[in-house]
């Protein structure tokens, strides 16, 4: 009958093996505690500083050359009358690392008698994904490949107001330029009552 006689080394090793799980559990607990603390602490806006400095995922050129998160109006169509028509282009820059779906929708319509007038403004939207070096401006020089109204065709009133309702353009990850061509016509049959009216709306692009 042999007795198992453990050497000091064996005991030491066994102890090491025994505390290993404890150490691993401790590390896991610490990680979870620290991660939860960092993610769920009730703070707002603590991580936005990097974005505020201009590292925006989505920008547009407002029909010009300077890209910004918010640009001044592409359309400032004053002194218009029924039958008037126009078309302009605007380029959106997507700098997100992930692929997404870019969609155009409008903000709320404001202005005097705005909704009534917007019902007489026919809008067409089409878009093409261009090379990252593209910078098509309001005059649409360099725009090619779109079909008028391919993305939207209808009144300014009926234009989608949410991301979910809008028609999208698939955009790959990395820097991408998407050129939108927006045409408008004030319905020749517009009622006389839309005199002294103005329809004002933001155009929003969102990528998800």
């Amino acid at each position: 009958m042999a007795y198992a006689i453990d050497t000091t080394d064996q005991r030491r090793r066994r102890a090491l093996r025994a505390i290993t799980p404890l150490a691993a559990l401790l590390v896991a607990a610490l990680l979870i505690w620290q991660g939860s603390n960092a993610a769920f602490s009730a703070t707002t806006d603590n991580t936005n500083d990097t974005w505020a400095t201009g590292n925006l995922v989505l920008t547009n050129n407002g029909g010009g050359t300077v890209y910004a998160g918010s640009t001044a109006a592409l359309f400032t169509e004053s002194n218009r009358k029924p039958g008037d028509t126009g078309v302009k282009c605007i380029t959106v820059n997507s700098g997100g690392s992930l692929a997404g779906n870019l969609r155009l929708y409008r903000g709320a319509i404001t202005g005097t008698n705005g909704t009534a007038l917007a019902g007489f403004i026919n809008v067409t939207v089409d878009a093409v994904v261009a090379t990252p070096a593209t910078n098509v401006q309001a005059d649409c020089v360099g725009y090619a490949g779109g079909t008028t109204g391919g993305t939207f065709s209808g009144t300014l009133n009926s234009m989608p107001t949410t991301y979910a309702a809008a028609t999208g353009v698939a955009v790959a990850g990395g820097t991408q330029r998407i050129v939108y061509r927006i045409g408008w016509t004030i319905n020749a049959a517009a009622d006389n009552t839309v005199q002294s009216s103005s329809a004002i709306a933001n155009l929003n692009w969102e990528i998800n």
């Binding site: 547009n60 407002g62 640009t71 408008w184 005199q195 933001n202 969102e206 990528i207």
Partner: peptide, 16 residues
């Protein structure tokens, strides 16, 4: 990831 860019205040005006 979702991001928004806006072209603000586009307007069409019909005067009297």
């Amino acid at each position: 990831f979702s991001a928004i860019t806006a072209n603000t205040g586009d307007s069409w005006t019909i005067p009297n």
